[in-house]
Amino acid sequence: MWRARTLDDDQTMTAETAARRPPAPPSKRTLFRRRSAIPGFGLTMGVTLTVLSLIVLIPLSAVVLKAAQQSPAEFWAVATSQRSLAAYRLSFGAAFVAAVINGVFGVLTAWALVRYDFPGKTLVNALVDLPFALPTAVAGIALATLYAPTGWVGQFLTPLGIKAAYNPVGVTIALIFIGLPFVVRTIEPVLRDAAEDVEEAAASLGANRIDTILRIVLPALAPAWLTGFAMAFARGVGEYGSVIFIAGNMPYKSEIAPLLIIIQLEQFEYARAATIAVVMLTVSFTMLLVINAIQAWARRFD
């Protein structure tokens, strides 16, 4: 794409200037390195594109090609089978609920970290990133043990009639764990940069603190909040390791979409596995576009 620009530039030259132009420079590399005197563009860009293609783009295309080996009717039948639909409902539903819960507590956590001083703040700050650092399988078995009917937390939920583990509730609990840092870490820098003088102005004009927060602070956080929400949701939809131990994995009930892919793979139904993967990829890429759109929208206010 960046090549096309330089060709266009050439074409806009009149015939006269083209004729007077000195012979083509010995190295065409100046055309690539627009407005930069720094060397190494050809090499690093070449390596980047090659590695990106070999590791990411070509392998990802394999899943689309595999799914495309079926007829559209076959594809549709697998993609929208009752079992698949139940799995999407669980994966998307649990990811949504978890992202909403993280949306609430994530804002509070970011608020406390940015605006307040309290003992142990450094520790809390480090701890928020635990889900990024802790292997998902470890989180999975820990949560399953905690929320099992005899577990530390589960024993208090059972008398209340709440079945947390081996249930969609358990899936949601695991996704809350996984998604929390996404929300906190997207809101935090925005909150830190937010000018307090706007709040001061609101207060001096007679707004009470609640009004200021609801009408000045939260609207300013909206783009970051939505981005964090979308990232937590996207991660939750595809999450596997932390979920399978606590989910119960009952078909139609507590079976997440990524697990369905693995089940199809184990039965050597590669095209079916690819079909569900394509559905999930489509949703992920849509989420990615949404996140990019939100961020582009947010930059308009800068």
Binding site: P59, A234, G238, E239, Y240, L259, I261, L281
Partner: peptide, 14 residues
């Protein structure tokens, strides 16, 4: 943005 399971699947397909 890709589910880890899909990340494994693509290499199985290749």
């Amino acid at each position: 943005s890709v589910s880890p399971v899909v990340a494994g699947l693509i290499y199985v397909l290749i």
